[in-house]
Amino acid sequence: MINVLGRLGRWALRQVAVALQVSVLMVDTIVWLVIAPLKGKGLRWRSAVEHMVEFGVRSLPIVGMICFLIGVIMALQASYTLDQFGANRYIADLVAVSALRELAPLMTAILIAGRCGSAITAEIGTMKVNEELDALQVMGVNPVKYLVAPKFLAMVIAVPAVTAIAMFIMIAGGWTSAVFVVGVEPVVYVSQTVGAIVEKDLVTGMIKSVFFGVAICWVGVYRGFQVEGGAEGVGKKTTASVVTSIFLIIIVDLVFTVLFYYL
């Protein structure tokens, strides 16, 4: 019993230590992103833009394809039930609302976590193994400023931006299967969609996706800084990075969904 309690205590202490490290990282990032540029210490804009292209533009093909297919699938699955009531036109409502509130932000975040969160961890981890992080520090260049701040900025802009496009594509996917397979009138589908969406759906989806971006970036960076001991360490933490960020994305999703449910 005491053994179990002891283990629990040590586990809790470790979690506290992790939480502490993560908060230090968060504060550092915010300082280098918001306060330091105001004090004239600069932000690496070019690097931020390059990362936006990497996280955003280069993610579009895969995110677009997956979201289109999910739209197609959702419409067909919806028709399975709605057809019994002769309510196929409501496929449009269902697809539009779930795409905006839930599925487009979630799918985008998970795909970007797999594609870019892992890349962030691998990059920073490799730099740590090669003493490049030490080299930056000795040169008087803060690694958070140099590496983390541009990635963070890029992530919180790229994820919502891709999400917005993903929402549109997912609805387009729903339209495609509803019109060509189920046989809903194209115009009816569009007017139903327009009627179903309210501003709040869009806003909640976008707010979520901003925080998904935050989660992906911080997990990626934190896992990268955690890397110890060569190439094997990089591999382990890269895997851990994807698992943790997907887990966190779901948790963030849950928190915001509950929050918006009551708002």
């Binding site: 490049e132 030490d134 080299a135 008087g140």
Partner: peptide, 15 residues
């Protein structure tokens, strides 16, 4: 640190 320079064992150039 501006007055100091360091050469690392593995050179530590940014890849």
């Amino acid at each position: 640190r501006r007055k100091m320079g360091m050469c690392f064992q593995g050179s530590a150039l940014l890849g």
